[in-house]
Amino acid sequence: MPTLEIDHLDKAYGPVRALRDMTFDVPSGEIFGFVGSNGAGKTTTMRIALGVLAPDSGQVRWDGRPVDLEVRRRIGYMPEERGLYPRMRVDEQLVYLARLHGKTPAEAKDAMERWTEILGVAHRRTDEVQKLSLGNQQRVQLAAALVHDPEILVLDEPFSGLDPVAVDVMSGVLRERAEAGVPVLFSSHQLDLVERLCDRVGIIKDGQMVAEGAIEELRSEGRLQWSVDGAPASAWAPSLSAGSGLRVVSSEGPRTVVELDGVSAAARTSTADDAAQAVLRAALAAGPVRSFTPVRHSLVELYRDVVSTPTEEPAA
């Protein structure tokens, strides 16, 4: 299966280290969400993948071979800042870009018509880009990334400025492209959307990949918490063993959230089971328990946990 590989990339701008051993991959047919704060290194990574920037070390590969000019011609790229000609008509611009990627005039025209129809801007084909709303400009920008039928999609903040209907349209297009075997790498600050759409997620901080995996994998590595609906915490939480690592993190009326601290990855499952039973026994001893469930953290919560953890500075 062809895979886009980002392999140990390093990049510095003077004393500022923009990327530190950046490594991950995106197999064909997968949507990979790239999240992190502004300046974390997402755009730098994408620009290196496109050949706009050169890494200080490391390599980008497609199907096991270094990405060269020929491969880059088969990548669909959508920059965060719009890269369209503002005074050029939508249809002329998309046909021109398709021709640059090797399409015949007839193929380019067909592709322009198809993607403007799919993305809901067919009625604006003869308008100049500058006359479109920001959301429609974003749709045209995506059409520009798709018009040459790319083998790889790299999209920097593709959902920025879109209304909910346009978000649904664009999400559907990305999922359809992935189902056709295209690897899709995109960055976004809309974490609820990333959680809903992506097969895997990478969280980047200070130029490093600090967490990577499917949402369920990231959840399993996050904080261990249980929600108890029963007697107030004051009636049973003090009975929890002081050395158990269990602590109450929130309590409001009958609902209490208890967290287990300091569990190694190797001992996580058995320790979690023991801790859950200890919490349940303590709560039952104080009265009926109406519900007892593990807390499922959202990507927003996982992200906050990861970025709030101090980053270890690598040795020089």
Rank of each mutant, 00 (worst) to 15 (best):
E92K: 04
I118A: 11
Y85W: 15
L84R: 02
M78V: 07
E70R: 15
R87N: 14
W115Y: 06
R47D: 13
P79A: 05
V121E: 05
P105H: 00
A111S: 06
L50M: 15
R61E: 01
E70F: 12
L94D: 06
E113K: 13
H101N: 07
S57D: 11
E81K: 14
V71A: 11
D110L: 05
E81P: 11
V121I: 11
A54Y: 11
M112L: 13
A111K: 01
R61V: 00
A54T: 15
L100P: 05
Y77D: 08
T116E: 01
V71Q: 08
R74C: 07
D63E: 02
E81F: 14
G58K: 08
E117Q: 15
V60K: 09
V67T: 12
V90F: 08
L69M: 12
V121R: 05
A108K: 00
P55G: 04
A98K: 02
R74E: 09
D110P: 03
A108S: 00
R89T: 13
Q59Y: 14
R65T: 14
T45N: 01
M112C: 14
I48R: 01
I48E: 03
K109I: 03
E92A: 11
P79K: 04
L97T: 04
D91W: 12
A106Y: 07
L84T: 03
M88D: 09
R89V: 10
E117I: 13
M78K: 07
A108E: 00
E80R: 09
L100Y: 07
V67K: 08
R74Q: 10
R61P: 01
D68M: 02
A54V: 14
H101E: 03
I118H: 08
R47F: 15
R74K: 12
Y96V: 04
D56E: 14
T104G: 09
D91T: 12
L100S: 03
M78H: 05
P66E: 05
P79T: 02
R47I: 14
V67F: 11
T44F: 01
E113A: 15
Y85I: 05
A106Q: 10
K103S: 13
L84V: 03
V90L: 09
P86M: 06
D110G: 10
L50I: 10
T43V: 12
Y77H: 12
T104S: 07
T43I: 05
G51I: 03
E70N: 15
M88S: 08
V67I: 14
G58L: 03
Y77F: 06
R72H: 03
D110V: 01
D91V: 11
D110R: 08
P79G: 09
M78F: 08
G64V: 02
A108T: 00
I118W: 02
K103P: 10
L119Y: 06
R87T: 15
S57T: 15
M112G: 13
P55T: 10
D110N: 07
A106T: 14
E80P: 11
P105I: 00
M46N: 02
T44E: 04
G64I: 00
K42V: 11
P79I: 02
